[in-house]
Structures are given as structure tokens and as C-alpha cells.
Design a protein around this nucleic acid. Structure first.
Lengths: 205, 205
DNA sequence: CTTATTAAGATACGACCGGATCTTAATTAC
DNA sequence: GTAATTAAGATCCGGTCGTATCTTAATAAG
């Protein structure tokens, strides 16, 4: 006891007096704190400091697990949102499938909260290292699903078989571009226009 | 002299001993310092502190003129780059014009330096207020030029007259989307693909 | 059970932010 | 020329960042 002669130490911040959480229990608490802080403050105002305080610990503990705010928030979102992405629309028509896909993306954005999405985008653009680590993930979002949809459409005779990947990803790319540039999900009118006036004419046999 | 009993005051940072720059002269010095710092450190490492130090003044002087880093850097770029945007390509064919336009954009990006562009993008995404202040500017980049190009093409009989604005901005939008997502200017192959496989088929009479 | 290892949590560091205050040059008004 | 106004530049503030260090619980190893 060379450092603290004061009898009243500065109140250990975590609830249980002198318990010290570890491993999964601690990690869950941290992620929950991040999630709560995200709801309470929003992405822009979310600080590592605030999350640590909410979890009753210090920043160092956060930095031992995540590189920074964006990774922490993404971890929180992964935990608190099932991320039910898997479902490929199958409405029976190419037009219906693509529209459904875009609506799906629209819903996803709305759920996540645009403010969080743009905040994350900001952090990702600012850091090349960070960006490259999710580049593939985001870039491929359209590809797989559209391949399936187009395959089925081609088998039904609705589309050619030799659709280039650029055309295949047109709907999702244009959708994303709208989000980037307008900072708001595309309106229903724009979605329909993407599909009817741009995409479908380029895919017909 | 109640505050500094030390005889050696901390070396007034601006060169001329006790001259105090003002107005345009000062502003030029600040902008030059920002530009130099941008070249020396790059956007990501450019701090207001460093620019102020380089200009031999303090941050407060910078904040009196610009809201923050992005506006300061943009001011520096405006000063040090003629921004010769005006020229609308006129090659005699729709295909040539659009290709020229995309190459122009490609060159612009290269000149500015991708690192700076992505850094700016990061700051803009992070701040809704900031974003909305340049939204129109960036959003409209394609529109005007493409309108002119398409008008001429339609008069030559190369394109329909009733091209929707979404199709009109397809090339620039897809180009931008590539930049956003790949964090690198589109290859020549991609540019040609945008024009030949996507844009031109949608514009023919 | 005792000892060694791990890592939680506290604390301190230097950097930068954005703003505020204060003194004092530089400028303008009279 | 003198006085009033403006704003440059220095300094300080509280906040956050990311890192490093230290103590000491919690766990694992023997």
C-alpha cells in the first residue's frame, strides 16, 4: 500500500463491490453496455469512455477486445440483431425478386438506424485499414443473392443466362449509391425505377 | 506582467518577431500552411494543431475562419488547384463524350489524391450537418454535364430525347459507386463496361 | 493447498479537439 | 495624432483518444 494512504478509495465503479468479471461474462456486459449506449446516445455521441463507464470498467478493458468504436458497435449489433440476412427472395418473377431484395435492404437500413450506418461509414472511410477489413463483406452483399435470383429467372426464360456481374449487381449498387449520396433510403418510386427502367431492360433475352 | 515571471518567453511562433498578420495576408498564410501540411502529412494525419504550428499561430485563428479540418482542406484545395471543372467533353459521339467524362473524373480523383478524398468522405459521413452543406454540389456533378452531352447526342440521333434523369446519371453514379466501394478509381475495363454494356443500351432510340 | 499465470480495473500519459478568455497589436474613426 | 474598434495570438479549460504501467483479483497448474 505505497500509493493510496487515503482510507476512502474512489468507489470501484462496477456494481458488485469487489467482484471482477472475466471472459464471456465480462464481454457480454461490455457489449450490452455498448448497445445501451448506442440506443441512448446514438453513434455520433457514443464514446469508448461512456461505454466503459456504463459497464463499470475502464477503457483499457474495451481496447483489449476491440480496436475502436466501429468494431465495438458492430459487435454489439451482431449480438443484438439476429442478422437474418440469408433469405433469398423467391416470388416467382425476376421483377418481384429484385424488388423484394431492395425492400429487404431498405428494411435492414431502417432497423439499423441510418444514423448508425452513416456514422460507421464515416469511420470506415477515414481508416483505410479498417475499410479493407470489411470491404469484401459489403462489396459482396449483392452478388450472391442476385446470382441465385438471376439463375432462377434465366431458367424461367425471363432473363438471359449470360448476365455480366456488373449488370447483375446494378440494382444493389444503385441502391447503395442512393444511400451514400442522398443519406436516406431510396423512395419506393426510385426502387421501382431502378428495377423497371434500368435493370430489367438489360436482362431480357 | 503578473503571469510570466520567466524571462525567456516561449518563442513567439510566427517568424517576424512581433509582427501580427491580418486579413488576406494571414488567410493566405494559413491556407498555404494547410496545403503544405496536407502534402507532408496526408489528410488522415493532418491536425489543426499542426497547421497552426506550421503557420506560426494558434488553433483559435483557424477556427475563426473554418469550421474544422474538412473545410480548411477544401479551402486549401480550392486555392491550390484551379478546379478547371467546366469543360464538357465534345468528341462527336455519345460514347466518346461519356468515356471522356469518366476519364476526366478519374483524372480529378488522381490529382486530388485518393487518400484525401476518402478522408474527406469520412468526415462528411460522420457529420450530417457538414454533409448536407455539400450534398447538392456533389450530387449534381453528373447531372449538368450529362444533360448537355445527351442533348447533343439526341440531336445527332444517337440517343432518345426522353432519357430519365436516373439513366442520364448512370455513368457518373456507377463510377462514384465504384470509387466508394473499391476505394480506388475504376479500371479502364470497368469504365468501358459501364458505358458500353449499361449506359448506351439504355439510351438508343 | 500453494504457487504461478492471466487479465481486470485503476491510473497516468501525451496528443488533439473545440471553445472561451485575455492581452495587445493592427486598423479605423474622429 | 489620439481614441475606439477589431481581431491575432497566447493560454487555459474539459473532454476524448489510444497506449502503457501497475496492482491485484480470478483462474490454472503443480
Amino acid at each position: 500500500m505505497t500509493r493510496s494512504p487515503e482510507p476512502l478509495q474512489p468507489q470501484p465503479r462496477h456494481s458488485g463491490g469487489k467482484t471482477r468479471r472475466r471472459g464471456a461474462a465480462l464481454e457480454t456486459a461490455l457489449i450490452d453496455a455498448a448497445w445501451d449506449e448506442l440506443q441512448a446516445a446514438g453513434y455520433a455521441s457514443l464514446t469508448m469512455e461512456a461505454v466503459a463507464a456504463r459497464a463499470g470498467t475502464s477503457r483499457a478493458v474495451l481496447y483489449r477486445r476491440w480496436r475502436g468504436r466501429p468494431e465495438l458497435v458492430i459487435a454489439a449489433m451482431r449480438r443484438h440483431r439476429p442478422m437474418l440476412s440469408g433469405e433469398v427472395p423467391d416470388t416467382g418473377s425476376l421483377r418481384g425478386d429484385v424488388l423484394a431484395l431492395l425492400h429487404q435492404m431498405s428494411g435492414r437500413l431502417a432497423e439499423t438506424g441510418p444514423e448508425t450506418v452513416y456514422g460507421l461509414l464515416g469511420d470506415y472511410f477515414a481508416d483505410a485499414e479498417l475499410f479493407s477489413r470489411i470491404q469484401d463483406q459489403v462489396l459482396q452483399i449483392g452478388t450472391g443473392v442476385m446470382a441465385t435470383i438471376l439463375k432462377r429467372a434465366a431458367d424461367r426464360g425471363e432473363a438471359r443466362h449470360d448476365i455480366s456481374s456488373m449488370i447483375a449487381t446494378l440494382p444493389t449498387d444503385l441502391f447503395r449509391h442512393q444511400i451514400f449520396l442522398a443519406r436516406t433510403p431510396p423512395s419506393e418510386r426510385v426502387i421501382v425505377e431502378i428495377v423497371d427502367d434500368v435493370f430489367l431492360p438489360l436482362t431480357r433475352p
